[in-house]
Simulated scan of single mutants.
Amino acid sequence: MLANAGVASRRVAENLIVEGRVRVNGEVVTELGSRIDPTTDLVDVDGTAIQLDPSKRYVMLNKPTGVFSTMRDERGRPDLQRFTNEWPERLFNVGRLDAETSGLLLLTNDGELSHVLAHPSFGVTKVYIAKVDGRVTAQTIATLTRGIELEDGAIAADKARLLSSSTDGGGSLIELTLHSGRNRIVRRMMDAVGHPVVDLVRRQFGPLHLGTLPAGRARELTKVERGALLTLARPAPSGPSQVLPQDQEPRRDDDPHSAGSDQET
């Protein structure tokens, strides 16, 4: 099981089991040769989830500006399909970035994981770098973290950091950390404090970091990244499942300006 998943050699995998470091569906397994169903059972080693189903694909895309977050745009605008030709599986995007926002977008054929991560109640943390008009002050940063009132309710950044601020009208660079999936939330927050967004990049989605991946390029997640992502999406062993009923599934409209879960930022 673990050897086939690429976790360790068969001998090392047996030692992990004997040492009680392997859990199946939240229960420690110490018996060698225990059978599991890779399509339904959840396995972790030292608390890190293991991918057992080789049919599941997880791809990180650095979405360029001008591309709409849909696999097939009915109006013929640039969409995500061109970035998935390398993989035979039918991939789809987890959440959205608006056409003028670039950065990290997760593509997968794992419907259950996508459902959990994209649902607003799950609150996956996202980190953005925004270039904005004007000179942002420490008081503005404090306002963003303290909270502001928008037309659809109050919102506060989990974290906000001023990276640079020009004194000659060149604008400011800020880092915002949010778990909200509200429509165009970063742009609306910055508009509300008087600093419209000029350029916006999502650098982080949950445990995934964009790193040096060039704009317009996609790559499969590493084993470590897959483990971190699957661990995030799985329920705690002693707690209730985070997976919500299917009738609460977020909308997947092709209109990038529609309301819904994790739509645009």
Rank of each mutant, 00 (worst) to 15 (best):
L107F: 00
S9H: 02
G26L: 01
I155E: 10
L61F: 04
G194F: 12
A233T: 00
P54K: 08
V224W: 13
G181R: 00
G147K: 04
R203T: 15
R252A: 07
H115T: 13
L208Q: 02
R217Y: 10
K223E: 07
N85M: 10
G153P: 09
T265L: 14
I50C: 01
K223G: 02
R11W: 12
V198Q: 12
V12C: 04
A192K: 14
N25S: 05
N109E: 13
A156K: 09
P88D: 00
S172I: 08
V197C: 08
A228G: 04
V59Y: 04
S165W: 02
R135F: 14
A49C: 13
R251Y: 08
G103I: 01
A156R: 03
V7Y: 01
L213S: 08
F68K: 12
A154C: 05
N183V: 04
T39S: 13
V127D: 01
K159T: 10
S165Q: 03
L105P: 09
L232Y: 03
D44H: 02
P245A: 15
T265R: 12
V59Q: 12
D44F: 04
G239C: 12
R251I: 14
D262W: 06
R96K: 10
T231Y: 14
E264M: 15
L173N: 05
A215I: 14
L113W: 04
Y58T: 03
V132C: 10
A5N: 06
I174F: 07
G169I: 02
M71L: 14
G6Q: 09
I141V: 05
V127K: 11
K131M: 05
V18S: 11
D79Q: 06
